[in-house]
């Protein structure tokens, strides 16, 4: 098998990062279960999700739409819809369980020690407030500084996210800026208080391809400058290869495989990860149908027993369909939730 271009990029990146395990954990999610209450009853969206985001490193959370990536991010920020219920688990930020905090204590951390960038830059900024007001407000909420000082800092942040003529942009309203510029403003706002953890939920999905690369680059550069831990949510394995250090693959509310980016691309173990990797179009392969994973993600209210991927897995047997596989270490730093691991058959 010829090395895919994505894989080549991934190994180039990860080689640059040394001592991954020594980096201090910033956020630790442990056995998180989140459900939603509806008129028809309740169902779980996340079931026993665990992962760790470390200082200066980027953890990519990958999976199909509806697998629970965004719910995970919103749970950390405490931004879940009112009908969401956190069943059990812990969300530790620098050792403090956020789930134990009062609304006021959580508010002291949101926008300060942890911050979030959303998928939709077009609607995430308030249309009736100026860019400057929206950044300044976040700074003054967490820093005992006057308006002038906060404005200076806001201009500085706009400069850091490479917005031209930042002084003039301060008085602009969001509609006067393009999508890419608005996402830069969101990043400036999120990083204004120098957070320990930055959550980016599909930050480039809504943007043009050329702008996507710029935004990812920017996040990476700023992370190198500040050492912020980044949790990057994406469905795009190209993005993972580009900016990720570690990856957690999510399927139907569970983490099915977790590894460094290099390991995951070089030696994918979960059949679902294999499916995801083989459905990336390649320039060097023969013309034909793009491989897909058959079937579709089961609905949260209608989860299969045993392994949740068993309904779509080419390797599944009765054991898979009756008993749920735990997420177990296969080698140091590479964990898989599959009875068949290590896989001996490699999917074409």
């Amino acid at each position: 098998m010829a090395p895919s271009p994505i894989l080549a990029r991934a190994s180039a990146r990860s080689d640059a990062n040394t001592n991954p395990a020594l980096a201090a954990p910033v956020a630790e999610i442990r056995d998180l279960q989140v459900g939603f209450r509806t008129d028809e009853g309740g169902f779980n969206v996340l079931d026993g999700v665990s992962f760790t985001v470390r200082t200066g490193r980027t953890l990519c959370l990958v999976g199909e739409s509806g697998c629970g990536k965004s719910v995970t991010a919103l749970s950390i920020m405490g931004l879940l819809a009112p009908n969401a219920i956190v069943g059990h688990g812990e969300i530790l930020l620098d050792g403090t369980n956020l789930l134990d905090l009062s609304r006021k204590e959580l508010n002291e951390r949101r926008g300060d020690r942890m911050a979030m960038i959303f998928q939709e830059p077009m609607t995430s900024l308030n249309p009736v407030l100026t860019i400057g007001d929206q950044i300044v407000e976040g700074i003054r909420r967490h820093r005992p500084v006057g308006r002038a000082e906060a404005e200076r800092h806001a201009v500085e942040m706009l400069k850091r996210v490479r917005i031209p003529a930042p002084e003039q942009r301060m008085g602009d309203y969001p509609h006067q800026l393009s999508g890419g510029m608005r996402q830069r403003v969101m990043i400036a706002m999120a990083l204004a208080n120098d957070p320990r953890l930055l959550i980016a939920d599909e930050p480039t999905t809504a943007l043009d391809v050329t702008i996507q690369a710029q935004i990812l680059d920017l996040i990476k550069t700023l992370q190198d400058e500040t050492g912020t831990a980044v949790l990057l949510i994406t469905h795009d394995l190209g993005v993972v290869a580009e900016v990720g250090d570690d990856v957690a693959v999510m399927y139907a509310g569970r983490i099915v495989e977790q590894a460094s980016v290099t390991d995951l691309f070089a030696d994918p173990q979960h059949p679902y990860t294999l499916g995801l990797l083989s459905s990336i179009p390649r320039l060097d392969s023969e013309i034909g149908r793009l491989p897909t994973i058959r079937g579709s993600v089961p609905a949260p209210a209608d989860m299969p027993s045993g392994c949740r991927f068993s309904t779509r897995c080419p390797f599944a047997d009765d054991h898979c369909r009756t008993e749920e596989p735990p997420l177990a270490d296969l080698s140091p730093g590479h964990a898989v939730a599959c009875w068949k691991a290590p896989l001996e058959v490699r999917a074409a």
Binding site: M77, L79, R103, L106, N107, E108, R109, R110, G111, D112, A115, M116, F118, E120, T123, S124, L125, N126, P127, E137, G138, R141, H142, M186, M189, A190
Partner: peptide, 17 residues
């Protein structure tokens, strides 16, 4: 329900603000 309200909450602003 708007996205910008979620952004405002993410900044840690009080519910009143």
């Amino acid at each position: 329900r708007a996205d910008y309200v979620r952004t405002a909450r993410a900044k840690g602003l009080s519910e009143r603000v």
